[in-house]
Design a binder for these strands. Structure first.
Lengths: 338, 338
DNA sequence: AATTTATAAGACAGCGTTGTCACTTATAGC
DNA sequence: GCTATAAGTGACAACGCTGTCTTATAAATT
């Protein structure tokens, strides 16, 4: 008894048809007699046959393989995006290669190019911060590869992007703080190269302007998306004589930093200070108090990206909605001011 | 100008040698004149040639492709393991396919079999909880596929496993609590099907026995690895008249649940109650107080797994150390009792 | 110098599919 | 009932590489 996996030839022999006919059945091609289809399907089942994906890729002009390119954002972010991408691709019969690419590494572009060529990819899904990297986008275009960029801050063809409504939801969040009676609202910006994160600040500004509240520049801090940078910003903010009553951090980690510092200083949350974050990372429920934040449907973003890319690859209509809406998750870190 | 990626034939033409010679250069085979190697390498560089991984896989008997099988454990866990696996495989010239597999889904085994056959994998790296699933392991063995199981609680050949010293480090952690003066120590067990997590309880028991401390059964709770289950266990534990002075939770999420409940009840940590967790997930630094916990070097585990698998595939010696040591990360959630 | 051996390079088949084209057999049209 | 068309099937090359075998050349041995 051989352990060799069965091939299309085995199926053909068993069903007493040609290889090509088996191939037709596998790929749902027309013009095969129903009787033949049945015969072949039985043989496939008996042999537990599965087509060899690499041979298929080689024989087809376009291999059914795409790649998800990421750097090292939060594990939570990437693993949920991945989940969505994988689940859609699996259904659509595509293989996915997950590929990490270090943003600042020298030779990053070259290694990316090597990877893409070697794998003969059909298309690419790119997550931030790479989706903001013009050099990288140019490379993809040079290689003439279909792509979908997630949350790119770049001004690109709509058909290449999946966006979130960061600006809009930040307006909503800011309005929520304003409606809760807050006027002295501080904002902690995100990492400067992370363009889409900066949409959040723009939303904040707009909402403040619409409410006719001046933004005090000393209440705007530049964070780096990390816990530590959140702590540092909070340190400055909370030492101010004109201390804010609410802080809007561009992501949850920085918000957690704020809460830590506040705790250390004996500032109670939400009683003395309201804090909101962005991302709804798992720890928002674990800290005290649970953090009010914005949830992006990451799985859905992943799925939509995959769908969009595959639709492109198969020359299908790509009129799908490309903006995926986030929602505010109200928890316990905000108080209403009297 | 065609966008077609260059092939080995193009390189051969340009270097004025045969295809086979180019192949030899690519694969570092012996018996090629230095002059020829140089010619070929120049041609490769000029054409920016990269071998087609799928054609290689097809032509070789063993494709250089492995898969990392996971369920849906914490994003943090899987993304760090993945990091290690990818980085090693990348260096070794292997491609990795990340494959999610839902533990409880009906037809899971069949879909796993399909996937493995279709991709003609060279080998498999399996994370918990699949590494504890006998049916799944049997399937892999039936398919005659080399494998490395991460943190399997099953009694398997040493050469197939990468283990962590959960029991040993739990003994250490327990001893630390004991040395800090704690006697009434509660333990929250992990998910029952997650065998390796249960090693943690065994370590706890041993340490208590060695210290001649009786384990009060009412201080042993059955958790489910989730925040919520941690809260539920804590609720019971902290309502006890004979309340513990320290709680050892089998993972960080449950420890966070304990801290939340304690906070609600006005029990101060660490002053009134010491809490330790396990895993060193990112949020341990974000909660107040920062949690004392056990760090498993996940990236290293991933790397070692990949190394072990690839060594097997290439018939190399696999005498590597297979137990990867964790360490206690001391933070602020434990107090010394006077 | 003649013969063995090592080194270098190529020819050719094969990996497991799909695409193209040609062929045979039904079905339809008049 | 005879041709035009469609439906069903297969032969064969191709995809881009590697393995095996062969041949040509250089080096080593006697």
């Amino acid at each position: 008894m051989t352990k060799r996996a069965s091939t299309i030839q085995d199926v053909a022999d068993k069903a007493k048809v040609s290889i090509k006919t088996v191939s037709r059945v596998i790929n749902n091609e027309p013009n095969v007699a129903i009787k033949t289809v049945k015969k072949v399907e039985t043989a496939i089942k008996q042999l537990e046959y599965q087509p060899n994906a690499f041979a298929q890729s080689l024989a087809r002009s376009k291999p059914k393989i795409i790649s998800l390119i990421y750097d090292t954002p939060s594990p939570n972010y990437i693993s949920h995006i991945m989940e969505g991408v994988l689940s859609f691709c699996y259904k659509a019969g595509y293989e996915v290669i997950i590929h990490p690419l270090r943003f600042n590494e020298i030779g990053m572009l070259r290694s990316a190019e090597q990877f893409i060529k070697k794998s003969r990819l059909a298309g690419l899904i790119v997550t931030p911060p790479h989706s903001d990297n013009i050099e990288f986008i140019k490379l993809i275009e040079k290689l003439d590869l279909p792509k979908v960029l997630i949350s790119s801050g770049l001004d690109l063809d709509q058909s290449d992007c999946i966006k979130t409504n960061d600006e809009e939801i930040s307006i909503e969040m800011t309005n929520y703080l304003i409606k809760s009676g807050h006027r002295k609202i501080a904002f902690i910006k995100g990492h400067p190269t992370h363009l889409s994160v900066n949409q959040r600040f723009i939303g904040f500004q707009k909402a403040m302007k619409d409410a006719n509240i001046n933004i005090d520049n000393s209440l705007v801090e530049n964070g780096l998306n990390s816990l530590l940078s959140g702590e540092q910003c909070a340190e400055r903010l909370l030492n101010l004589s004109n201390r804010p009553t609410a802080i809007f951090a561009s992501n949850d980690e920085m918000a957690a930093g704020v809460i830590k510092v506040a705790y250390k200083k004996g500032i109670r949350i939400p009683d003395d200070l309201s804090v909101v974050g962005f991302d709804d990372s798992p720890m928002t429920e674990m800290i005290t108090p649970p953090l009010t934040t914005v949830r992006q449907p990451l799985d859905a973003i992943g799925e939509k990206s995959a769908q969009k890319l595959i639709d492109k690859l198969e020359d299908r209509d790509i009129s799908h909605e490309s903006i995926i809406k986030s929602e505010i998750i109200f928890r316990e870190s905000v108080t209403r001011l009297h």
